[in-house]
Design a protein around this nucleic acid. Structure first.
Length: 594
RNA sequence: GGCUCCGUAGUUCAAUGGAUAGAAUGUAGGUUUCCGGUACCUAAGAUGAAGGUUCGAUUCCUUCCGGGGCUACCA
């Protein structure tokens, strides 16, 4: 397909030179709109001035030239300044044959570049929520897409397992926990720890109220609450390796991480390398010392360390607290260095929400100022937050959608729908459960990935469990249908082998399907360069939709013309494979039956 | 306030500066005894406002209106 497109572009380029002496090497062909005849369209408006001719005239002459000089072009139509080109009938069969013969139909050639993708990056003080789901699905999908695009990919996860916020849940547990454990409470570890993070917040607020009644202002009260001092003291004790604090920390972290492990398994995501902030913050502090020696950072009288980025249009930014403990960005400097030492990747992608745009701008500037070899190739894949119909998720208002709960609900809905409509006779209990899992997770993943990552999106719980229209299950259903046809064809010993012949013509519905299949690699490239799984989601939806249209218009098994029957069967099989591969890039598994 | 992102059918999402702005959902109607109807077909329905650049603007620029985020010695 690309070959043909390039050939036509070249012909147009040649025509422009010979007819009008115009040098234009990058001719962009676009798809012809549905309501017009043709496959590719060339817009000739840009050449009006240089050619000294009205656009329709240019298009006419160019059309005649291309028709005479390009082997793939049959007819052309001129509509104002648009030149619509139709391919020769036989070309469509050639394109299909080419796709079928391509042993690397779903994998682009190696780019010899290494990409490190950091995603998930949870805090070990509370369970995962809806926002984390978008993050995890995005990160995993981008990794799959980059791999298909020919990059060497390393998936990493930076666990934020230390810091003042972690101390808050530890402290609350110490104060109110009465020694309960995931075992004694029957709670998943991350949920149990989350309970104490909430408990801290509650106690903190109560103290603030008390202080305000004693005449303090809001700000004073917030800064002077005793429980906050306790948390700060605990952080200091932690950084000084106080054995008791460390023991509590290790205990509670292990609970959380075991809980996350279960969630990750359910999500179907994984990592090649897990970094822990507790192992990188010291390196970060070392880098602060280096930067201080280099004069990149400066120290204020109270001992805190800062960087001045006013020349870069930013602000002063703290990199080390006055008590010497590290902050978020300190640790990020250390992690960046560690990653470079471990992998030396050419590109480093951080999948983190857009509320941290400023943070990453600062981080990347700091790395540049420190003259680090890994100061280039950094990219913040900044995604929008997920809103609920009721507005923003707020933990203190109890409107947070828990990741584990949501996944369980989706699977339950899939089960109900399948019991009602599915064709799963003969499935074992295990097979049924696996199917419900694939459908529920497919629906959720597709729902969160079909939107452009950069944009904030609305999560409507009612619509998300809808399995009709532009949804994961629609795509899964289409695939199951395809496999059903393929199975039946095998039973009837229908062959999918045919030999190419330029006299074979394809119906419009077939041509359009072939066109989409032939576009697969272009879409991978596009999705990889934009780091946007939504490109793939849109594509696989279009493909499934086009297949359904083809399916209602044309017979496959019942086709009497044996050549047509074989071609259609091979086309159906190829469509099925393409849908499966594209869906996998989103982390969505398409079933054989449902 | 400063910085920044975003305003597209009732709703949720599309559209490298190109043709009559695409889907889905919802609404109204329909699908040949057909290989799986979670499907297919038809209809009505939208670019926040005003300027500007351009042969051509949802897209680029300016102002206004509306919304989000950042503006922590939290992460």
């Amino acid at each position: 397909m690309l070959r043909i497109q390039n050939s036509i572009s070249a012909s147009i380029s040649l025509g422009l030179r010979q007819l009008f002496s115009i040098e234009a090497n990058d001719i962009s062909l676009q798809e012809t709109k549905k309501e017009f005849e043709g496959t590719f369209t060339c817009v000739v408006f840009p050449y009006t001035k240089q050619a000294g001719m009205a656009p329709p005239m240019i298009a006419q002459k160019l059309g005649e030239f291309v028709q005479a000089n390009n082997e793939h072009v049959d007819q052309f139509q001129v509509v104002q300044g648009f030149l619509n080109l139709s391919l020769k009938e036989g070309t469509w069969v050639s394109i299909l044959a080419e796709c079928l013969a391509d042993s690397n139909a779903f994998q682009l050639a190696p780019k010899n570049e290494k990409v490190l993708i950091e995603y998930s990056s949870p805090n070990t003080n509370k369970p995962l929520h809806l926002g984390h789901l978008r993050n995890n699905f995005l990160g995993y999908s981008v990794a799959q897409i980059m791999e298909a695009a020919g990059y060497e990919v390393i998936k990493s996860n930076l666990v934020n397992d230390r810091g003042i916020h972690i101390c808050k849940s530890m402290l609350a547990y110490q104060l109110f926990g009465s020694g309960e454990t995931p075992e004694t409470s029957g709670m998943k570890g991350d949920h149990l720890v989350g309970k104490y993070y909430v408990a801290f917040d509650k106690a903190y607020k109560e103290e603030i109220e008390t202080l305000k009644k004693a005449g303090k202002t809001e700000d004073q009260a917030k800064a002077e609450a005793p429980i906050l001092f306790q948390a700060q003291a605990m952080l200091l004790a932690w950084e000084q390796q106080d054995p008791e604090v460390i023991a509590l920390w290790e205990r509670m972290n292990s609970w959380v991480l075991a809980g996350f492990e279960k969630s990750y398994t359910q999500m179907g995501v994984d990592f090649d390398k897990i970094y822990r902030e507790s192992n990188t913050y010291l390196l970060g502090k070392k880098i602060v010392d280096e930067g201080l020696a280099q004069g990149v950072f400066f120290q204020k009288p109270d001992g805190s360390v800062w960087i001045n980025l006013e020349a870069e249009g930013l602000d002063e930014k703290l990199v080390l607290r006055k008590d010497g403990t590290s902050v978020y960005i300190t640790q990020d400097m250390g992690t960046a260095q560690l990653k470079y030492a471990d992998f030396g990747a050419d590109k480093s992608i951080y999948v983190v929400g857009n509320e941290q745009d400023y943070h990453f701008e600062v981080l990347f500037h700091i790395l540049k100022k420190l003259n680090k070899p890994y100061s280039t190739g950094n990219f913040h894949l900044s995604y929008g937050m997920v809103d609920l119909p009721s507005g923003k998720m707020k933990s203190r208002e109890g409107t947070v959608v828990d990741a584990d709960d949501l996944m369980a609900e989706m699977i339950q809905t899939a089960k109900e729908r399948t019991m009602e409509l599915g064709k799963i006779d003969g499935f074992s209990v295990a097979e049924s459960n696996e199917l419900f899992n694939q459908l529920g997770m497919g629906a959720l993943k597709y729902f969160l990935l079909k939107v452009d990552p950069k944009k904030r999106m609305l999560f409507n719980p009612v619509e998300s469990i809808d399995f009709q229209g532009n949804t994961g299950p629609f795509i899964q259903y289409t695939h199951a249908r395809i496999k059903s046809i393929v199975r039946k064809a095998a039973e009837l010993n229908i062959s999918n082998e045919w030999t190419e012949d330029q006299s074979i013509t394809l119906a419009t519905a077939e041509q359009e399907l072939v066109y989409l299949i032939a576009q697969y690699k272009l879409k991978i490239e596009e999705a990889a360069s934009q780091l946007a799984p939504s490109v793939i989601a849109q594509y696989v939806y279009d493909l499934a939709k086009q297949f359904n249209k083809f399916y209602t218009e044309l017979s496959i098994i019942n086709e009497e013309d044996k050549t047509k029957q074989k071609i259609r069967l091979s086309l159906v099989e190829m469509t099925g494979k393409t849908i499966r591969q594209a869906a996998l890039l989103l982390g969505v598994i398409v079933p054989e039956r449902m």
